[in-house]
Design a protein around this nucleic acid. Structure first.
Ligand SMILES: [Mn+2]
Ligand SMILES: [Mn+2]
Ligand SMILES: [Zn+2]
Ligand SMILES: [Zn+2]
Lengths: 161, 161
DNA sequence: ATCATATCGAAAACGATTTTCAATATTTTT
DNA sequence: AAAAATATTGAAAATCGTTTTCGATATGAT
């Protein structure tokens, strides 16, 4: 469904918007203004940014951009299906999205259930375990999520029972 | 079912319903008819059973029991907070519950996104990793979830694209 | 230009869950 | 055994994040 490999150039970076346009067009989709704006938000951030539909709406609204939730949700789905974004459910019943940086190893998350702080960690053995368990039962793995819930050090301190 | 007489004896195992009653009473809560019925469903099954609120409703309704969703959800919350049940989000935006058998090692899940089949696996290293990552950032872990999504062997076969 | 197709926003619909509230059940106190 | 205090219930309404519907608009191709 997606290959984030730079196609040809001995150049540093191909024009990213053009790349996205290509990706979308390959599926008969269009790189609209709104989709571009959403992409920019994700690309503005470095690894470790996790945004909800609401976050994106606020972001764009505060910049004077008018966009509807329907459009945001639609764009997010498309970008996930193209492999541009990764979808994670950090808080129950709420989805977050992060840029699926091509050269970055898959990672997992710790979430503070008090303040919502999210930190990440890489751990190859988790992938290994997943593959092993999947193979053991002839199960074709599509994705896996490992999330640790608890209290960050700050929230532990401020939690006076 | 369990209509033992109050055991004055010095027996090994205390009566389970009595145990639940005790647990609830300790928090000023009551072991009502409805809560008892819900508990029975979970205890009827062996390890590996994952039920949603809807499942419980159907179960009880089919037995002629009348119960409301409000009551089911309330009971589930209480039982989770008492540690009697474990809550897991197998399908996005939908919670499942399983009996938190005291002597059973924590386990994790593979979910078929096609047919919903759930299988379990135990893997101690996952807990170890969690503890290590949590400690590394002075994070107090409360729980963790590791879920592998994909297609079971049956659904792979029937998926002809 | 003309036509086909993709996309948009607003509003309604959705599904799982939570809350509200008056009626009922259980426990504790008299 | 009342009476008083407290916990629990079901029905209905509310919530929340998300999805769908649908007529209007934008974009791309011929
Ligand atoms: Mn991340
Ligand atoms: Mn399980
Ligand atoms: Zn925190
Ligand atoms: Zn399956």
């Amino acid at each position: 469904m997606y290959s984030h490999q730079s196609p040809s150039s001995s150049h540093d970076q191909p024009d990213q918007p053009d790349q996205f346009k290509l990706l979308l067009n390959q599926e008969g989709l269009r790189l609209t203004n709104q989709r571009q704006k959403i992409l920019e938000i994700f690309m503005d951030r470095t690894k470790g940014y996790h945004l909800s539909a609401e976050d994106i709406y606020q972001h764009l609204s505060s910049q004077g951009e008018r966009i509807s939730f329907s459009t945001i949700y639609r764009a997010l789905h498309i970008l996930v299906s193209l492999g541009v974004l990764r979808e994670i459910e950090l808080i129950e019943h709420k989805k977050y999205y992060e840029f699926n940086h091509p050269n970055i190893a898959p990672h997992h998350h710790l979430v503070c259930i008090q303040c919502g702080e999210v930190t990440e960690f890489e751990e190859d053995s988790i992938i290994d375990i997943s593959h092993r368990e999947a193979q053991n039962r002839n199960f074709s793995m599509l994705s896996c999520q490992f999330t640790i819930y608890g209290l960050c050090s700050q929230c532990q301190a401020s939690d006076i029972w």
